[in-house]
Design a protein around this nucleic acid. Structure first.
Lengths: 331, 331
DNA sequence: TTGTATGCGTTATCAT
DNA sequence: ATGATAACGCATACAA
């Protein structure tokens, strides 16, 4: 790789002249600037990030820690993060915690030594469960941290999340207003907070419209064959005209049940699942779905972090952003 | 962040003594080493990557360029890369080319300035299509490059790929040996090389066993409703007892067709798609599938690169590794 | 056994 | 308008 030194030697000027010329400093003649830029271009000069980083105490790199890259939600968030960071001239250093607090702590250490300017973190399940967040609190300046999706109220910093209760509330409301009378709820994630919130939203809408709640079914996805049978029984006995699934798997599984039993037309059940545009392609007939807008979560989180990093005033109050989901209705 | 300088001052020794002690040099007394290590521990000292990188001309960071993070195949490869790199003490800097040559070239530039030690790249569709790979050839030392999955024979370097022809050859053979007589082939990716290879494997197995080829159907996934109808017609007229789908979407779509028409039992068609363990969960009844073992591709690619980076001899011959797929048969 | 000096590539300050 | 110099954090050749 060519360096300022090399360019300087070839041009017969000093290193600082080259540096200033490339940074378009006021005190360098237009002529020199042109000569320097041309050679730099020709030599395919790229400033060395480590040299600049060492000097400026800034790496223009953001550390990202996600619990699970195989979860398409996080992959999509990452897409949004990458998009926004790229736009603002930042690199991303991506780490995976595998949902484990220990790994998460290790990654924080790693990234700090990698001299990232700031952190974008979605907390590991284990961390949330145990409320064990000292590895974050003690090692990361909240001015350099944005939490997304998996939040903890034990840390005072910028957050970007989804309003799970609002999503299901709105969808349930929409269904009611479309004339559905018996709306059931299906979930395999009632042990998680977001599962509970989604259920709350469903119940809230029903109670607002004084509608009796329909059957609520808890699914365990461990034993699929057994669940399939249970679902079939359920839908045959249940008079629901719409079903809201609290998660991606439940929705698709339920839709498949309708198909295998050829019940879809007979029962006229509208199914609404959680998904994203990519996965939705895999269902046919196309399932109605709630898209959490994951890439927007990533974009927004990155935007907030970069804004804070580049603001010199430490006076920006912490914000709590909620990203709205998009509902895709086909029927 | 604490630095060697700070530790040195607190201990009343020189910077180099601290540095050597932490690196366990021979010429430092055990006593001093202990004192230094203890303080370093207490201060939560982390060596600054940029300082070390600048000095050593090594960043212990690997640049990864993938075409599309929303494609679960690449997300899974990334998982494997991260796993292996993490194990060997390397960070990964992940970039997305969005299948565009221009973006890919930009990312190469970016990563070079970020001073990565080496590159793991899966080429963008556009790059492969146009054979336009100068941005790689001219800017990356082949000793520091491993291509994976999307390969080009215009670049002489280590490669890790899948043997697409072999996969479908083996699966077709298995089906024949299980007694299937009429094996059809379904594809929506016949425009891609890997799609062509998968078809070749299918045809090769049939010809080896002197079995007449069954219907071969090209799917376009643009207009899903139309395709669905076409598929239904196809399966009703077609006497196939097994269908090999060349890609994930085709397989799931076809399986759904069987379900919507309640044809599954009547026709007794065995479907084999491409998928991974995660996506396979979304089908019911569980679809037979070929798992490309994507995370292994990532692990192997990272392993090869690190081995080459850490070998001082430049004499290692380039290797061409093929990762075998796993076939999951449920019926 | 420990310390001093140097340089990696960059930028900012202060001469000239 | 240009150049010399110092400093960022680290590792190492060499001196003591």
């Amino acid at each position: 790789m060519s360096s300022l030194k090399e360019l300087a030697k070839l041009l017969g000027v000093s290193i600082s002249t080259v540096s200033k010329a490339l940074n378009n400093a006021d005190d360098i003649s237009e002529n020199t600037k042109i000569r320097v830029r041309e050679l730099a271009e020709a030599m395919n000069y790229q400033p060395n990030k480590m040299g600049a980083g060492l000097r400026n105490k800034k790496s223009k790199t953001i550390g990202v820690i996600i619990p699970d890259i195989l979860n398409s939600f996080f992959a999509e968030v990452l897409f949004g993060i990458e998009k926004q960071c790229s736009k603002k001239g930042y690199d991303t250093l991506v780490c995976i915690s595998n949902e484990m607090t220990k790994k998460e702590a290790e990654k924080v250490r790693l990234l700090k030594s990698g001299s990232v300017d700031g952190f974008l973190i979605s907390l590991a399940a284990q961390t949330l469960k145990n409320g064990d967040i000292n590895h974050i609190k003690n090692n990361i300046d909240p001015q350099k941290l944005v939490l997304f999706d998996r939040l903890s109220d034990q840390i005072n910093c910028d957050r970007v999340g989804v309003d799970d209760q609002k999503i299901t509330y709105q969808v349930t409301k929409q269904l009611i207003e479309k004339g559905y009378k018996k709306i059931a709820f299906l979930s395999s994630i009632n042990n998680l907070n977001l599962g509970k919130d989604r259920k709350k939203g469903y119940l809230k809408a029903l109670s607002e419209y004084s509608i009796a709640k329909e059957n609520i079914m808890e699914l365990s996805l461990e034993s699929r064959a057994a669940m399939h049978k249970k679902l079939v029984d359920w839908i045959q006995k249940n008079p629901a005209d719409a079903v809201i699934a609290a998660d991606n798997s439940s929705g698709i599984m339920f839709q498949n049940c309708l198909l295998t039993q050829n019940l879809r037309k007979a029962k006229k059940v509208t199914v609404i699942g959680f998904s994203n545009d990519k996965n939705a392609l895999l269902t046919f007939p196309k399932m109605n779905y709630i898209d959490q807008n994951a890439s927007m979560i990533g974009e927004k989180a990155a935007e907030l972090l970069i804004k804070r990093l580049e603001s010199n005033s430490k006076e920006l109050p912490f914000v709590d952003v909620k990203i709205d989901a998009k509902v895709n209705f086909f029927e």
